[in-house]
Simulated assay, not measured.
Amino acid sequence: MSVAYTAVLNVSEGSVLFLSGLLHAERVRRGTRKGRRALGTYKQAVLVLRWFLDDTRMLALARDNAIAVSTAYDYRDEGIAVLAARRPSLHGALLAAKAAGHSHVIVDGTLIHTDRISTPGPTRGVDLWWSGKHRHHGGNIQVVSTPDGWPLWTSDVRPGREHDMSAARANPELLARITDWVSDGALALADLGYEGEPATFTIPFKKTQDGRLAVDEQACNALHGALRCLGERANSLLKTTYKALRRYRGCPWRLGSITAAALILLHHEHHRTT
């Protein structure tokens, strides 16, 4: 027995039409004939957005649209792909930030939780996707944001066992573009997790063995923390807007594309990129 009810999706009509247009263009590119799909592009866009916004289970999405569960997965994955294909390059994002007059950007990593994955890592007895810091399985995503905490760019995923510095080094575009950004006189604020690249990232002073800092160093750290903490808003904005990013129940290597797709939706919904 089931009960039907009316629900409202917390997204603008413009975002649905935007995604519907991308899906239509993809069908044209593939040469999909009219009437060969179970759902039109508008209903498919709603299906994809329901998953992103509410993390609606695929069984429910399939039932509500009278399609097979496997078809619902295919439709969702197609939506993710067309959105992720529009992800900005870090070079373009930083050029836009420079044009907007931003004096600095904030670089921070966030862990997107996943179900338990017993994939052996390089350390014996430790899963590849297990984050010791967060005590949870997940994928590490690097996020570059504006001074007020608006996400500009997201990286591909790295296994949760990797610290932020290791994840940043695994992405050659990230270090290269941030180095260019800094060489132009701007700053890239980061926490002590990035202390391995002090010439690239502006990080706070680290306490000495006696646990003391000079007064000037304390003042510098306080100012640094006040500016950098806004970068946490970027991570929070993505996860609170799109519940699908709070815990993913699929192959973790897909998290980079999923996060990039969420970024494109966020930019379009708020009509803001920088």
Rank of each mutant, 00 (worst) to 15 (best):
V3S: 04
A7Q: 12
L9V: 06
S12D: 11
E13R: 12
L22R: 05
E26C: 09
V28M: 13
R29Q: 07
R29S: 13
R33Q: 14
R33L: 15
K34M: 14
R36T: 14
L39R: 08
G40H: 05
G40L: 08
Y42L: 13
Q44Y: 09
A45L: 13
V48I: 12
W51C: 09
F52M: 13
F52T: 10
L53M: 14
L53V: 14
D55C: 14
T56N: 08
L59N: 13
L59K: 15
L61K: 10
D64K: 09
D64T: 01
S70P: 04
T71C: 07
Y73P: 03
D77F: 12
G79I: 04
A81N: 11
V82T: 05
L83S: 09
L83I: 03
A84V: 09
A84L: 12
R86Q: 15
P88C: 12
H91N: 10
H91Y: 11
A93I: 10
L95I: 06
A96Y: 02
A97V: 10
A100S: 13
G101P: 04
I106Y: 00
I106N: 00
H113G: 04
T114V: 14
I117T: 10
T119P: 05
T119K: 09
P120N: 11
G121P: 02
D127M: 06
W130G: 00
H136E: 12
H137S: 07
I141V: 13
Q142H: 06
Q142C: 09
Q142P: 00
V143T: 04
S145E: 01
P147N: 02
L152K: 04
W153D: 02
T154M: 08
S155F: 06
S155H: 03
D156A: 08
G160L: 02
H163Q: 08
D164N: 08
A167G: 02
A167W: 01
A170T: 01
E173T: 08
E173R: 13
L174P: 01
L175E: 08
A176V: 09
A176N: 04
R177D: 10
D180A: 13
W181H: 12
V182S: 07
V182F: 05
L189I: 01
L192V: 07
L192M: 11
G193K: 04
A199G: 10
I203M: 05
F205K: 06
T208W: 07
R212L: 10
E217F: 03
Q218L: 12
N221W: 09
L223E: 15
H224W: 06
H224K: 02
A226D: 03
A226S: 06
L227K: 03
R228D: 00
C229H: 02
R233F: 01
A234S: 11
L237F: 00
K239Y: 06
Y242D: 10
Y242Q: 10
C251N: 15
W253S: 15
R254Q: 15
S257A: 15
T259I: 13
T259V: 15
A261K: 09
L265V: 05
E269L: 03
